[in-house]
Design a protein around this nucleic acid. Structure first.
Lengths: 161, 161
DNA sequence: CTTCATGCAAAAGATTTGCAAGTTC
DNA sequence: GAACTTGCAAATCTTTTGCATGAAG
């Protein structure tokens, strides 16, 4: 019984590009391009929004590949380094990840009550971040930016009580 | 053998205010103001920078209070809700916290290699964040903002190889 | 045919929980 | 005295690791 609500149809072109890019990454490191690793990349890219390790393993299996969690755990750092996924911490929650390959950069606005996640883009943030990094003489490689709030709906339902 | 490098002398006034504020919080919830909880608050406030649960427990003991980790774990959500501390995730690291009571708000710039943390303040970020929240009709209650980079020193040492 | 990948089960860590005994209000 | 806290140990959950076997280059 798989839940397709959080699955995303990925354009063939993008998928191929991602797999290619991942295989190149593996070759450069003298690592093996295996079916299981490819299946993990596919499953990760097909995820809409954030996913946990266990969910990723389940998705890979739903795609017809046997895989142990250990293998998924071992693959994660590779996918991250290859730029396929990114860790996305949400304070006080289980560790989660999201696909980034071929997607536009965005940050998150999270409702503390219902956990709904809104993605937003705001170039001004990026510019300011580069400024801050430059000021302290850091080479910027990434960032984690999450706004925590209470969405309109949750505000309404809690004031109703 | 306690390491004082990461300890911070806290002004008596601030400490008293924090304890008072915490006790008020407890009373409002019909929870008990115990010595152990007060000791945990004191230890947390005395921490400079980020700390892990185990370190907090050690500090409480160093202050002369016996405490089990279980109790510290049980106290953490209270300290967070009372606004004494805040969770501060660093991607791929152990969960950590930092004291916020009576301190100026800041965000973090973290070196991916040496893990050094630089705190920065930039009012422009706060303004933009309020704008984003307003745009999506969220009531903003907090945020997590970390820039990940490589500091000048680490860049120098890695280019040397 | 060498090196790397995988599954499994065990290990290691982190966090939570049930319960009996002790405290706070 | 009732309700809440605590320590302890056990239970859970997450992530890592050793080792024997199987696959990739």
């Amino acid at each position: 019984m798989r839940d397709y609500r959080n699955k995303l149809p990925v354009a063939d072109g993008t998928m191929k590009e991602a797999i290619d890019s991942f295989q190149t990454f593996l070759r450069l490191r003298s690592l093996r391009a295996t079916d299981v690793r490819e299946a993990i990349v596919r499953a990760a890219l097909a995820c809409r929004g954030h996913f946990h390790v266990e969910e990723l393993a389940t998705d890979v299996r739903a795609g017809g590949f046997e895989v142990s969690v250990a293998t998924v755990y071992r693959a994660l750092p590779l996918l991250i380094e290859a730029g396929i996924i990114q860790p996305t911490e949400v304070s006080g929650e289980k560790r989660s990840y999201e696909a980034v390959f071929g997607r536009e950069h965005h940050d998150h606005l999270i409702c503390r009550q219902c956990r709904r996640v809104v993605e937003f883009q705001f170039e001004a943030f990026e510019m300011l971040q580069r400024e801050v990094a430059a000021k302290y003489d850091f080479e910027l490689v990434g960032h984690l930016h999450e706004l925590i709030g209470i969405c309109a709906e949750c505000r309404r339902s809690s004031s109703r009580q």
